[in-house]
Amino acid sequence: MAIYKSRRRRSAFYLGLCYVAVAIGLGWLAIILATLLFEGFRNFSLTVFTQMTPPPGAEGGLLNAITGSLIMTTLGVAIGTPLGMLAGTYMAEYGRYSKLTFFVRFINDILLSAPSIVIGLFVYEVMVVRMGHFSALAGAAALAVIVVPVVVRTTEDMLLLVPDTLREAARALGLPRSIVIGKVAYRAARAGLVTGVILAIARISGETAPLLFTALNNQFFSTNLNAPMSSLPAVIFQFALSPYKEWQHLAWTGALLITLAVLALSITARALQTQRPAK
């Protein structure tokens, strides 16, 4: 009986620790979100969307940073998505059992978690050094490199979910393979493919490290792709570490905007995923 009791106590003790971990872990993350919402909304005003980033000590907004982020994110996704989708298509359709697919999958999973700052260095070496100056184009290229593995992964996963019977039925009608993929496989996996792109957007909209020395930053409004461009994360980085109160407030607001955007994107992706019709 004593042994039994001690085992029960021991079990209760360790399970208690689990509850503590949950309380600390979730509580901590809740505190971060709460602070972010509080600080972000406290300094929030509509001028954020209408004014440029201010010089030190002045009021201003984040218009140039928001525009820059939107431009570079769009470009990055536009470059990275087709490449990622095609590669994912090869892995799921043509070379499902080939050595190449196995190898690409392995490398892709590593690229997926590779430090993004190294991607920044890569694009700096390949583009910024060649062109002789920082540019929005280089920033978009760095983001595209981050988009590729995300899209490859989801495309492959989603295409593999499409039942082979659908493909075989289409083939039995005499359709060529590329049309089977385009009209049957892509269409059946459409929600999943869109999810992948949305996840990729969510992933790069907060990326800071690869932009620091590709797109650099720009205090002024610019849509010139061949010149340095401002971006929200870069502005947050610069403003948060500054001693000026106005800048720090803007950094909080920017952080709030990014978080809200990322959360909205992730939730959309999740909603799409669960909506996927059952076969």
């Binding site: 990622g84 190449l100 892709n108 590779a114 890569f122 490199v145 590729v148 593995p149 590329s178």
Partner: peptide, 23 residues
């Protein structure tokens, strides 16, 4: 289309190779 997708798959490998080589 087959060749295009194959090239894209290789491009992922080349991307990694490019990162290492440039570094």
């Amino acid at each position: 289309f087959h060749v295009l997708t194959l090239a894209a798959a290789w491009a992922v490998l080349i991307l990694l190779g490019g990162v290492i080589a440039s570094l």
